[in-house]
Amino acid sequence: MNKPHLILASGSQTRKDLMNRLHIDYDVIVPNIDESPQGDQHADDLAQRLAFEKAQHIATQYPQAIVIGSDQVAWREGAPDIFIGKPLTVEKAIQQLQANSDKIVYFSTALSVHQSITGFKKTLVEHYKVKFRKLSLVEIERYIRLEQPLHCAGSFKCESLGISLFEEMSGKDQTTLMGMPMIQLCNILRSLNIQIP
């Protein structure tokens, strides 16, 4: 029996890097979906909906494949209905990091795995919490210049220099903060008879 075809429904380089940790064959197909909020009341709802839609969009085109969708939404403590997106500009990144300074930021990271031919669909949300230390404008500007985190929710990359911005990090799985909860993904793939490791 042939091994199922695996597809990562994402254009994110970070998610590709996370998938590469598993040493399994997979393809990447970027889903063309509208990622804007549509009346989502909580960061969990938005992340879950987008992860589901990404996986569903590709799974309908490749019904034999196991399709992996993921999405992440950041939000500040006490405001899960105000979503922190990707800054895209230096000015917006400065504003985001100034707003994050000395605050707790939560990351709702959703994972959705589909295989249309078997009817398999599993979607979940994992959380990670980061406490930012008090950041000066000089530190913020220097960090953005060095790391260019303009396509990262919250304006930082925890897997590199972004770690210097934090006072504390907590959660079950650090890859949740990076954009895809890999412990949960491994559990799901094993349940679908994908050998890991």
Rank of each mutant, 00 (worst) to 15 (best):
P4S: 03
L6V: 07
L8P: 09
L8H: 07
S10N: 02
Q13T: 12
Q13W: 12
R15S: 03
K16Q: 14
L18P: 10
M19F: 05
N20E: 04
R21L: 09
R21K: 07
R21H: 06
H23N: 13
H23E: 13
I24Y: 05
D25R: 14
D27L: 09
D27A: 05
V30H: 11
V30A: 08
P31L: 09
N32F: 11
N32Q: 15
E35C: 04
S36W: 15
S36H: 11
P37Y: 00
P37S: 07
G39C: 09
D40A: 07
A43K: 01
D44Y: 03
D45P: 06
A47L: 06
L50N: 14
L50W: 05
A51C: 08
E53M: 09
K54Q: 05
A55E: 00
A59I: 10
Q61N: 04
A65I: 00
A65S: 10
I66L: 06
I66V: 05
S70T: 04
D71A: 10
V73Y: 08
W75H: 13
R76W: 02
G78F: 01
A79E: 12
I82R: 15
F83D: 06
I84G: 01
G85M: 09
G85L: 06
L88M: 13
L88K: 15
T89D: 00
E91Q: 10
K92E: 13
A93K: 04
D102C: 05
K103R: 11
K103L: 09
K103C: 11
I104P: 00
I104V: 02
V105G: 07
V105A: 03
V105H: 08
T109W: 02
A110P: 06
A110G: 07
A110Q: 10
L111E: 01
S112P: 04
H114N: 09
H114W: 07
Q115T: 05
S116Y: 08
I117F: 13
F120T: 05
K122N: 12
E126V: 05
E126Q: 08
Y128N: 01
K129M: 14
K131Y: 12
F132R: 02
F132C: 01
R133D: 02
L135R: 01
L135E: 01
L135F: 02
S136T: 08
S136R: 00
V138S: 13
V138C: 15
V138E: 03
E139C: 04
E139M: 09
I140K: 01
E141L: 13
E141S: 02
R142C: 14
Y143E: 03
Y143V: 15
E147W: 03
E147K: 11
P149A: 10
H151Q: 08
C152N: 15
G154D: 04
G154H: 04
S155C: 12
K157V: 06
K157F: 13
E159C: 01
E159K: 02
E159L: 05
E159R: 10
G162F: 01
I163N: 13
F166K: 05
E167P: 08
E167T: 04
E168V: 15
M169C: 10
T176E: 02
M178Y: 14
M182S: 03
I183H: 12
Q184R: 12
C186D: 03
N187W: 13
N187Q: 15
L189E: 03
R190Q: 14
I194P: 04
P197W: 08
P197I: 14
